[in-house]
């Protein structure tokens, strides 16, 4: 059967620009929604992750047990399940979030756990002499974290962080189960309506529009950090 591998047929199925005619607007508005979720989630999960790491390092046995439980919960739970619980489950407790809020909350909650672990090991990798030098100059513990430990930890964990950020962008696609038209959902709508998978293929290319700048951004950060090491 030569038909299955016919180049024209592949083009007709997966790269059918006629299908895309008039549909780019919906895809780009989906892309914009994905960017919004991702940017909010990246900033919030990084900040929360930092907080988690410091709580882990400074906390007592109780907070440590709590935070270890939190991490293990995030490891064990598929992110879609967490989203379903927050969006469809919490309303039973009269706690209702919008689809956008639910998506951000779940992504931040899960990724902050991993980012927290990364920061924790980054801070632990810094020589104790750095804290001692800072404190001998009169810096408080908080100032020591803020000006000495966290900036250095950032440089150490940047590669891990960049992986997490990429993961967050990919995880925005869980929103397809909600009434929220981000990139993948937009592509699914068009694909169903046109009965052709080309929009899905196009959506993968549009994800690259976010991932490539992010990669360039983190590479620049890494180069700068390398200089200051």
């Amino acid at each position: 059967m030569d038909g299955a591998f016919d180049i024209d047929e592949i083009r007709y199925i997966f790269f059918n620009m006629q299908v895309m005619e008039g549909q780019w607007g919906l895809l780009f508005s989906g892309l914009w929604m994905t960017v919004k979720i991702a940017v909010v989630a990246i900033i919030a999960s990084t900040a929360l992750g930092l907080l988690v790491s410091i709580l882990r390092l400074k906390g007592n046995a109780f907070t440590n047990a709590l935070l270890i439980g939190y991490l293990e919960f995030c490891r064990a739970t598929p992110i879609v399940v967490a989203l379903i619980v927050v969006y469809f489950g919490l309303p039973f407790l009269n706690i209702t979030f919008s689809p956008f809020q639910s998506a951000v909350i779940v992504i931040v909650f899960v990724h902050a756990a991993y980012i927290g672990e990364a920061f924790r090991s980054g801070i632990l990798a810094i020589n104790i002499a750095q804290s001692e030098a800072a404190q001998s100059l009169g810096l408080t513990q908080l100032q020591t974290y803020r000006y000495i430990l966290v900036p250095q930890a950032f440089r150490i964990v940047l590669p891990t962080l960049s992986n997490q950020w990429t993961g967050i962008i990919k995880d925005t696609s869980i929103c397809t189960i909600l009434a929220i038209t981000e990139l993948l959902k937009a592509a699914q709508i068009v694909a169903a309506w046109k009965a052709n998978p080309t929009p899905l293929v196009m959506s993968t290319l549009l994800y690259l529009l976010i991932l490539i700048p992010l990669t360039i951004f983190t590479m620049k950060l890494e180069r700068k950090a390398g200089l200051k090491k």
């Binding site: 020589n127 002499a129 750095q130 001692e132 030098a133 800072a134 404190q135 001998s136 100059l137 009169g138 810096l139 100032q143 000006y147 000495i148 900036p151 250095q152 440089r155 950090a225 200051k228 090491k229």
Partner: peptide, 30 residues
């Protein structure tokens, strides 16, 4: 500790700051 200076065997400069920034940190922040 502000008034008790300490110099360490292994210098313990802050690697992410320039020489000038190392010296300016505590006067500005503390």
């Amino acid at each position: 500790r502000r008034d008790i200076g300490m110099v360490f065997q292994n210098f313990a400069l802050f690697p992410h700051l320039t020489a000038l920034e190392n010296i300016m940190l505590a006067p500005t922040k503390v």
